[in-house]
Design a protein around this nucleic acid. Structure first.
Length: 198
DNA sequence: AAAAGTCCCAACCGCAACCCC
DNA sequence: GGGGGTTGCGGTTGGGACTTT
């Protein structure tokens, strides 16, 4: 599925595709990036992308790393405490997502932004009020029902990335690099840091 | 069971700020 | 001080997953 999306880009032509890739990251790319940063550290992203042999922009690498691959990225449901904090901070600072994210260790600005837009903002609007507490109460109720159902019970088969979020540990063995069933977890990787030898 | 609608999130884009020469 | 390159941020979009009809 991830590969499918990429294959859409491949429709352009091979040489162009070799220039710069877009769209969902594959497991191979993730591994390359993680390995490279584990060995060399973060650096100038454009150089990093080139040196690592990733046909991606530095920007794309940075985003992928910061939002997804970093070992300290915390995934999974936003807790009620975090939710309350997000609401308070948003009330104070507005859409300063990165600033808000800094107050929530392990959470990314992208995640908070998405969370706000999909869960909170909608409810605030729906309630025809900017009453955050009210929105929160509504949301708390829903997080214990519908949201929990969709995320934790994981209705249908989750995608490569989604599976990693919901149940990162109990996944199929990582690093089976040949299929598009890229079910593995970053946590797996970081727990196997000896993988790359140095 | 199938189609349509909705939800959710990863990733992209454009812009501004920052940094270095 | 100016120019070019890099980084960080916020808004937006594409598409898979899920729900409803």
């Amino acid at each position: 599925m991830v590969e499918e999306a990429n294959s859409m880009d491949k429709g352009i032509n091979c040489s162009e595709e070799a220039e710069v890739r877009k769209g969902p990251w594959t497991m191979e790319e993730d591994l390359i990036l993680i390995n490279y940063i584990a060995n060399h550290g973060e650096g100038v992203w454009n150089n990093l992308a080139r040196s690592a042999g990733l046909n991606r922009t530095g920007k794309s690498c940075r985003l992928r790393w910061l939002n997804y691959l970093r070992p300290d990225v915390r995934r999974g449901n936003i807790t009620p405490e975090e939710q309350l904090l997000i609401m308070e901070l948003h009330a104070r600072w507005g859409n300063r997502w990165s600033k808000i994210a800094r107050q929530l260790p392990g959470r990314t600005d992208n995640e908070i932004k998405n969370y706000w837009r999909t869960r909170i903002q909608k409810k605030v609007k729906h309630g025809e009020s900017s009453d955050y507490q009210h929105a929160m109460l509504i949301d708390e109720a829903s997080t214990t029902t519908s949201q929990t159902n969709s995320v934790e019970d994981g209705g249908a088969q989750p995608s490569y990335t989604q599976q990693r979020e919901t149940n990162p540990v109990a996944l199929a063995p990582p690093f089976s690099t040949e299929s598009c069933d890229n079910f593995w977890s970053v946590e797996d990787f970081w727990s196997m840091q000896s993988f790359n030898g140095d």
